Amino acid sequence: MSLLSVQGLTVRYGPLEAVREVSFSLREGEALTLIGPNGAGKTSVLRGLLGLAQAEGKVFLDGEEVRGRSPEALLSRGLVLVPEGRALFPGLSVEDNLLLGGFTRFRRRENLRPDLERVYTLFPRLLERRRQPAGTLSGGEQQMLAIGRALMARPRLLLLDEPSLGLAPLMVQEIYRILGELKAQGTTLLLVEQNAKVALALADRGLVLEAGEVVLEGPAEALRQDPRVVEAYLGLSREPEVAASEGEPLVASPGEHPEEEG
């Protein structure tokens, strides 16, 4: 059984249809990335999943339909978002921001210290800066803090919206190294990224969105080598021998990818 199964997700903002009939599944411990241009609907998929936007379709978590549940209820079930822009509390200390990430568990009087220690082990810079206001951190450090805050909620599924946005290349590498560690530890990841190169290097599978629809999907390695993805999203030119595919729609042929088990 899939940890997350999404069937026919459609997301609207008033009369505007931002996402149309998107379907995918995600197994426990797997990493899936959504890539595509600005305005493709990637963030809207996350918002629709979490009840942050008007949505239709079906969303199953562990086989139970959860679409329509409140964002807080989904958080308690382990769906945790690292939002684009980080949404930190700049005047609060690093540690206070982290503790707020565990607020659902704090209300149950759970001990958050082991989770703090885990975050500080993953992000030693945050330990060094734990008394600093979050607003004084660098952009990369703020992204570390946003991920660390999400980990305080003990996510079963960690949703990340543009985690590399605005970061220097070396910091992007560091963030994705840590995401790789989380994946190796069993955390399930759903990534929204414009940086297709780093996202596909980490992910097991990928979906390409254009104009609110899935136009291509498959194993990440296959997408990395697909000439359509290479030209459109990886910043490289196609070789002459594949140039004959010019003008082909960016849509996988029926039966091109084997059906997933479960």
Score class of each variant (00 low, 15 high):
E239S: 15
L50A: 12
A40C: 06
V242P: 05
R125T: 14
E260P: 06
L236D: 05
V208S: 06
E260M: 02
P114Q: 08
L165E: 11
L157D: 10
Q7W: 00
E239W: 03
L75R: 09
A220I: 12
T33Y: 06
G29E: 00
S5I: 00
L200I: 03
R107G: 08
G135N: 08
R149P: 15
G180I: 09
R118E: 11
V80L: 06
R47V: 01
T43P: 08
L116W: 05
P254Y: 03
P163C: 03
R27Y: 00
L99R: 15
E193V: 00
T33Q: 04
L34G: 01
R118C: 01
L170A: 13
L223W: 12
Q142R: 07
Q225C: 02
S25N: 08
E213L: 08
Q225K: 14
L170K: 08
L4T: 03
G135V: 07
R113K: 13
R130P: 14
H257R: 09
Y13C: 07
G148M: 14
R156N: 11
L99M: 09
L191R: 00
L81H: 14
L49M: 10
G247K: 10
Q185P: 03
R86C: 08
H257Y: 01
P163A: 02
L179N: 11
V6L: 06
A134R: 05
V198D: 06
F123T: 11
L75H: 04
P133W: 09
V242Q: 11
G36C: 06
F123G: 12
E95T: 12
A31V: 06
G8A: 15
G91A: 08
T187H: 15
S245C: 02
V198M: 10
G85A: 06
P124R: 05
L179K: 09
R12F: 11
A146P: 14
R149I: 14
G247Y: 06
Q142E: 05
R12Y: 13
V22I: 10
G14T: 15
P258T: 02
A199F: 10
P240C: 10
R156V: 10
Q7L: 08
P37D: 14
K183C: 07
L165Y: 03
V208M: 05
M1I: 00
S93W: 07
L4P: 07
L116E: 01
P114H: 07
Q7G: 02
G212S: 12
K42R: 04
R105Y: 13
R228L: 12
A220E: 10
G78L: 03
G29Y: 00
A40N: 04
L200K: 04
T136G: 03
E217K: 12
V192C: 01
R20I: 05
L116Q: 04
E30R: 05
E241R: 13
I147R: 13
K197V: 05
G63H: 01
R118F: 07
A73T: 14
V59F: 09
R47W: 05
L191N: 02
F103I: 11
